[in-house]
Amino acid sequence: MIDWIIAQQGMLSVTLTLLIITEHFFTQKLGASLTYKLWLLVPVCLLLNNIPMSIVAIPSNDFSRYVVGITPTLTTRDAAPLFITWGIGVCVITAYILVHHLTTWASIGKRRAVHTNAYYSSKATTPMLFGFIAPKILLPFSFKSTFSSAQQALVLEHENVHRKHYDHLWNTIALTVAILFWFNPLVWFALKSFRINQELACDNAVLKNKTENEKLTYAKALVQCAEHCSNAITLYPTFGEKRTMIKRLNAIKQPTRNSKVFAAGILSIAALVTINTALAKVPPPPAKAETKINEAAPVKHVSPTYPTKAAKNNVEGFVVLSFDITETGATDNIKVVKSAPTGVFDKSAQVALDQWVYKPRIQGGKGVRQTGLLVQLDYKLSDTP
């Protein structure tokens, strides 16, 4: 698992950096709707970066042979501490999200606040769309006393646009990415930029055909919400989120000036990122016979343990294993091809090979998985191969 997590970081970091820069500097030129849609690059690139290895991996016919003695040197796999640390972070963040979700769910009143799918909640300091699957609009108890009838209609329209855009599902995907890659600071900066683009796109859809007076009413509602908005971190889009307020008010004040040429340039860059991610998984043409590229030799070799029962009974034998080398050099997909005596040394051989580390094969500046490697471990009670 940790190998997979590490293998995503290069592509993910490049994609998130591009999107963060776009949100910070180019939203006004691209338009709120298009900028928000560009975040589709994240799940698309993640999918392309994980095309099944059986389709794109480089096959290898390398065959290695090692002798196993009765005095092995055992070491622990270096990735174990990283996996434990990553797992702790995932559990802590997931637990926080679950507790926040359950406490908010428990605060929802049974009666609808208005004729739409909206309910009062003691946890809602400002109107918000709550839920990941079947979302509800949550309103603070002061909703009707704080806003005029016109403002109430605009606020509810805003929340319903969130639902129409399926923002509850996109937020679920965003939180999933944040949980899996919590250690990457770019993920959290990107989550903030994503939410800003989400709110701007929603405002743009609500105000698209509104009059100047209605836009002013909407802006006043935003300011009123910001005054009552809690500073606590929220998992769901809220109407009066303070972190997005300035940009949202500026977008209402200064209409977007879409630049078709600039939009075409950004879309071209996005297409190049996507194509590069897809082509990175395609193996290059096979090397010439006389050229050796990264010959498969372990840089970390862990000798198997000679089974105690086999040593006492003077049993010798061998195990032939097939395996893959991942993009980071770890072993994967280990299977026993043949062994003699059957089942005596299999487990010992698999446990040891799982801890071997190879120099990864590099093609086009990136690590490429190798498949179909074979290794034979000869279990000998003497030093003669």
Results as ranks from 00 to 15, higher is better:
residue 4 W to Y: 08
residue 4 W to T: 09
residue 5 I to G: 00
residue 7 A to I: 00
residue 9 Q to P: 00
residue 13 S to I: 01
residue 17 T to N: 00
residue 23 E to M: 11
residue 27 T to A: 06
residue 27 T to Q: 07
residue 37 K to T: 10
residue 41 L to C: 01
residue 54 S to T: 07
residue 55 I to A: 13
residue 58 I to T: 15
residue 59 P to T: 06
residue 59 P to F: 04
residue 59 P to A: 08
residue 60 S to A: 12
residue 69 G to R: 11
residue 69 G to W: 07
residue 74 L to P: 00
residue 75 T to S: 15
residue 75 T to D: 11
residue 75 T to A: 14
residue 80 A to R: 10
residue 82 L to G: 10
residue 85 T to C: 07
residue 85 T to W: 06
residue 90 V to K: 05
residue 91 C to S: 14
residue 96 Y to I: 15
residue 99 V to W: 14
residue 104 T to N: 07
residue 105 W to I: 03
residue 106 A to G: 03
residue 108 I to Q: 05
residue 115 H to M: 10
residue 119 Y to C: 09
residue 133 I to E: 04
residue 138 L to I: 09
residue 140 P to A: 06
residue 144 K to P: 02
residue 146 T to A: 10
residue 146 T to W: 03
residue 146 T to M: 13
residue 147 F to L: 13
residue 149 S to D: 14
residue 149 S to L: 13
residue 149 S to V: 12
residue 150 A to G: 12
residue 153 A to I: 04
residue 156 L to E: 11
residue 157 E to K: 15
residue 159 E to C: 13
residue 161 V to L: 12
residue 169 L to A: 12
residue 173 I to P: 01
residue 178 A to S: 10
residue 180 L to N: 06
residue 182 W to C: 02
residue 182 W to G: 00
residue 197 N to Q: 06
residue 200 L to H: 04
residue 205 A to P: 02
residue 208 K to L: 10
residue 209 N to K: 14
residue 212 E to R: 05
residue 213 N to W: 04
residue 215 K to L: 06
residue 220 K to Q: 14
residue 221 A to T: 06
residue 221 A to V: 06
residue 224 Q to G: 02
residue 226 A to I: 05
residue 227 E to V: 11
residue 230 S to V: 05
residue 232 A to D: 15
residue 233 I to S: 09
residue 237 P to E: 06
residue 238 T to Y: 04
residue 243 R to A: 12
residue 244 T to S: 15
residue 247 K to R: 15
residue 248 R to G: 08
residue 249 L to A: 07
residue 253 K to W: 05
residue 255 P to M: 12
residue 259 S to H: 08
residue 259 S to L: 02
residue 260 K to H: 09
residue 262 F to K: 02
residue 265 G to I: 07
residue 268 S to T: 15
residue 272 L to V: 14
residue 278 A to P: 02
residue 280 A to H: 04
residue 283 P to Q: 14
residue 284 P to L: 13
residue 287 A to D: 12
residue 294 N to F: 11
residue 299 V to Q: 09
residue 308 T to V: 14
residue 312 K to I: 08
residue 313 N to E: 15
residue 314 N to I: 05
residue 315 V to G: 00
residue 318 F to M: 06
residue 324 D to E: 09
residue 325 I to H: 04
residue 326 T to Q: 08
residue 328 T to R: 04
residue 330 A to I: 00
residue 338 K to C: 08
residue 340 A to Y: 12
residue 341 P to D: 03
residue 341 P to S: 05
residue 341 P to H: 03
residue 344 V to K: 06
residue 346 D to S: 08
residue 348 S to W: 11
residue 349 A to Y: 05
residue 355 Q to W: 01
residue 360 P to C: 06
residue 364 G to I: 04
residue 365 G to T: 08
residue 367 G to A: 05
residue 369 R to E: 11
residue 377 L to K: 01
residue 377 L to A: 03
residue 378 D to E: 13
residue 379 Y to L: 07
residue 379 Y to P: 04
residue 380 K to M: 12
